[in-house]
Amino acid sequence: MRPKEPAWEVALDQTFAAHKRRYGTRRLRVALHQQGHCLGRKALRTAMRRRGLRALQPKAYTPRTTDSTHGLRCASNRLLDQPPVVQANRGWVSNITYLPLASGAWACLCAFQDVASKHVVGWHVMATMPEELVTTALQRALLAQQPTAGLLVHSDRGGQYCRNTYQALLYRHQALRSQSRRGKCYDNA
Results as ranks from 00 to 15, higher is better:
residue 27 R to M: 15
residue 174 Q to E: 01
residue 119 H to M: 07
residue 23 Y to W: 12
residue 184 K to G: 00
residue 34 Q to P: 00
residue 129 M to D: 01
residue 151 L to V: 07
residue 47 A to S: 14
residue 99 L to T: 09
residue 121 V to N: 06
residue 179 Q to F: 01
residue 37 H to R: 11
residue 133 L to W: 10
residue 111 A to S: 13
residue 101 L to T: 11
residue 104 G to K: 00
residue 80 L to E: 09
residue 53 L to V: 02
residue 167 Q to L: 14
residue 156 D to C: 09
residue 49 R to H: 14
residue 151 L to I: 07
residue 54 R to W: 04
residue 152 L to S: 02
residue 99 L to Y: 13
residue 35 Q to R: 15
residue 85 V to K: 05
residue 109 L to I: 02
residue 44 L to H: 01
residue 78 R to C: 01
residue 143 L to W: 14
residue 157 R to S: 09
residue 72 L to W: 01
residue 159 G to E: 04
residue 23 Y to N: 02
residue 185 C to G: 00
residue 116 A to Q: 10
residue 63 P to M: 13
residue 146 Q to H: 14
residue 140 R to W: 10
residue 136 T to Q: 06
residue 122 G to S: 04
residue 103 S to F: 00
residue 181 R to W: 02
residue 19 H to Q: 14
residue 50 R to L: 05
residue 154 H to V: 12
residue 76 S to C: 03
residue 135 T to A: 11
residue 152 L to R: 06
residue 62 T to W: 08
residue 88 A to W: 02
residue 134 V to P: 13
residue 157 R to V: 13
residue 156 D to G: 12
residue 187 D to Q: 05
residue 17 A to D: 10
residue 78 R to V: 00
residue 188 N to R: 07
residue 94 S to I: 05
residue 141 A to K: 12
residue 100 P to S: 06
residue 60 A to C: 09
residue 1 M to G: 11
